[in-house]
C-alpha cells in the first residue's frame, strides 16, 4: 500500500460518488455539490499521477493542471449558482 494507490482509489471513489449524485440528485444545489465532488475526484487522480517515489520531486505539470482545473470549476460553479438564484427568484415570484 503506497500513498498514491490509497489516494488514487480515494479519488476514483469520490468521482463515482459524485457521478451517482449528479445523475440522481433532485435538489439543484445538491446536484452542483455532486459535480464538485467529481471535480475533486479528477483532481485526486492527477495529483496522484504526479507523485513520484522520492516524494520531494513530483511532476509539476499535473499540479499546474489541477490548479487550472480548480479555477475553471469555481467559475462554472459561480455561473450555475447565479442561474439557480435567478431561477428561484423567478419561480417564487410567479407562484405568488
Amino acid at each position: 500500500m503506497t500513498p498514491d494507490m490509497i489516494y488514487g482509489l480515494t479519488g476514483i471513489a469520490v468521482f463515482a460518488i459524485g457521478l451517482a449524485g449528479a445523475l440522481c440528485a433532485q435538489d439543484r444545489l445538491r446536484r452542483l455539490l455532486a459535480l464538485k465532488l467529481c471535480s475533486m475526484g479528477a483532481g485526486f487522480l492527477l495529483v496522484v499521477a504526479a507523485w513520484r517515489v522520492p516524494p520531494d520531486a513530483p511532476d509539476p505539470v499535473p499540479h499546474a493542471l489541477v490548479i487550472t482545473g480548480i479555477v475553471v470549476v469555481v467559475s462554472a460553479t459561480a455561473v450555475a449558482l447565479a442561474l439557480i438564484r435567478r431561477l428561484q427568484s423567478l419561480e417564487t415570484r410567479d407562484d405568488d
Binding site: 467529481c38 479528477a42 492527477l46 499521477a49 470549476v73
Partner: peptide
Amino acid sequence: LLFLLGVG
C-alpha cells in the same frame, strides 16, 4: 469533468 478524468 468526465473528459478531465480521462485526461488524468
